[in-house]
Every structure is written in structure tokens, then in C-alpha cells.
């Protein structure tokens, strides 16, 4: 395959950044998108140019490190992570535009790499449970209804890649925060801190300069893990409950 790439190049946080066009020949349709970028970088290195910086780690779709906006869609045309997207999803001769996640809360570090520390700070604000250490309780000590367990697990599959923020017209991180609130809120271990968790996480989210959710649903539509949109409604319900109890 012959591919023309338009890639966002930015030397550092303070650099203005610009789109640069590269041509690649002999791209295999079986390459992953990241392998295609590897090929580009080998070529650039041989030409004594700076390789394109991009985040990646497991390349198995489970770590959440990779993620770029491809032709205007977070993680590209397939509902998966960028590492699990293959070049067969494109056509020979295609021009592909590659950009970093764009959000004030996710400043560009270099090229396609953004700083997603804002997500960590939202989790630190309340996305955890406080449990005393000691012997693990018996597995059947706390019976949990199957639908609740399923919903908690579905929400817990969030890998924190940031595609929801990238796709949101308001650059809101609501789906990310809602996934964690739902995950912990469905389980008995999450109950003691349930009311304060949602308030603390939302306050942190606002402080990080994410926008507000307008329930458009682009986040859930691009989520590689299929986090359901109704987790946001569950977050809102918890939030209103906390506010009416005077927490927050």
C-alpha cells in the first residue's frame, strides 16, 4: 500500500506545532497502525530527521498508552485502540491525518504525545477504596448480584486512554470519571466512600479544565472498551444524591 501521512509535529510544549506530510510506500495491510508509524520513524531516522514521538506500551489493546486522532476519529475508524487498528482498514493511496488528543487538560508534550496526568489526579481525588490490610476475606463473604458484578466489571474495563476526552466536543472527561464512579459504586467495597467520591472526582475534573458534559454521546461511541453511556447518568444520580445530603 502507498500511504500519505499528515502528522502533527510539535517540538515541545511551547512550540506552535504544524502538520507535516510524509509519503510511505510498501505498507503492508497486515501492519498495525503503530507498526506503520515505526516504519515511518525508521525511514526518518535513516534520513537524519527527528522521529515522530507517540505513546505506546503493550500493543495488545489493554494498557491505554497509545491513542491518536486518525482522520478526525479517536483511535481511527475501528472501535479499538490505535495499536489494534490495522492498515487493512485503509485503502491504497489514502491520505491519513494523525493528530494528538486535543484538550487543555491534556497538553501536548511532543508530536503525538500528550500529558494525561489530569486523569491520574481525578483518580487520586476519589477513584479508590480505603480498605484495611490483613487477611483476604472469604470469596463468598460478600455476595454480589450477578448484574451488579457485570456492570462493575464493564465499567472497570476503562483503560484511561483518553479517547472520550478527545472525541467530546466539549473536551469533557465525564465518561472516564463515570466509569470509575460506576465501577466502585456497584460493589459493596465502594459504598463507604460513595457519596464523597463523586463530589471529589467531579471537583477535580472541573479544576483540570475539562469541559462540561452535554450528553452528546461521542465518548461512548469511540470508547475502545465500550464503556456504556449510561454510566454518566449513574454518576449524575450519585452526584445529585450527595448534593442533596449536603456533601460537597
Amino acid at each position: 500500500m502507498n500511504i500519505t501521512l499528515r502528522v502533527w509535529r510539535q517540538k515541545g510544549r511551547d512550540d506552535e506545532g504544524r502538520m507535516v506530510t510524509y509519503k510511505l510506500t510498501d505498507v503492508s495491510p497486515d501492519m498495525s497502525f503503530l507498526e506503520m508509524l515505526d516504519v515511518l520513524n525508521e525511514k526518518l531516522t535513516l534520513e537524519n530527521e527527528d522521529p515522530v514521538a507517540f505513546d505506546h506500551d503493550c500493543r495488545e489493546g489493554i494498557c491505554g498508552a497509545c491513542g491518536v486522532v486518525i482522520d478526525g476519529e479517536a483511535h481511527g475508524p475501528e472501535r479499538t485502540t490505535t495499536c489494534q487498528l490495522h492498515m487493512r482498514s485503509f485503502k491504497d493511496g489514502d491520505t491519513i491525518t494523525v493528530e494528538p488528543w486535543r484538550a487543555t487538560a491534556f497538553p501536548v508534550v511532543k508530536d503525538l504525545v500528550v500529558d494525561r496526568g489530569a486523569f491520574d489526579r481525578i483518580i487520586q481525588a476519589g477513584g479508590f477504596i480505603s480498605a484495611p490490610t490483613g487477611t483476604a476475606p472469604d470469596a463468598h463473604a460478600n455476595p454480589i448480584p450477578k448484574p451488579d458484578a457485570d456492570r462493575a466489571f464493564d465499567a472497570a474495563t476503562c483503560i484511561g486512554c483518553g479517547a472520550c476526552v478527545a472525541a467530546c466536543p466539549n473536551a469533557s472527561s465525564m465518561l472516564f470519571t463515570a466509569a470509575k464512579v460506576t465501577h466502585l459504586g456497584m460493589l459493596p467495597q465502594g459504598q463507604p466512600e460513595r457519596a464523597s467520591r463523586v463530589v471529589k472526582m467531579i471537583n477535580q475534573q472541573d479544576e483540570e479544565d475539562f469541559g462540561g458534559c452535554t450528553n452528546i454521546g461521542e465518548c461512548a461511541a469511540v470508547c475502545p472498551k465500550g464503556i456504556p453511556l449510561d454510566t454518566i447518568s449513574q454518576l449524575n444520580r450519585d452526584l445529585l444524591g450527595s448534593l442533596s445530603k449536603g456533601i460537597g
Partner: peptide, 18 residues
């Protein structure tokens, strides 16, 4: 707040389902 949350706009933006 939403404007401030994304000051650098995308060069290409596709609507997925909105």
C-alpha cells in the same frame, strides 16, 4: 468552559454518531 477546554482545534474532525 467548553471553549477553554479545547483551545487548539482539530484539523480534521469527524462526527461519529452525534
Amino acid at each position: 468552559r467548553a471553549r477553554k477546554a479545547r483551545t487548539d482545534r482539530y484539523q480534521v474532525k469527524k462526527r461519529v454518531q452525534r
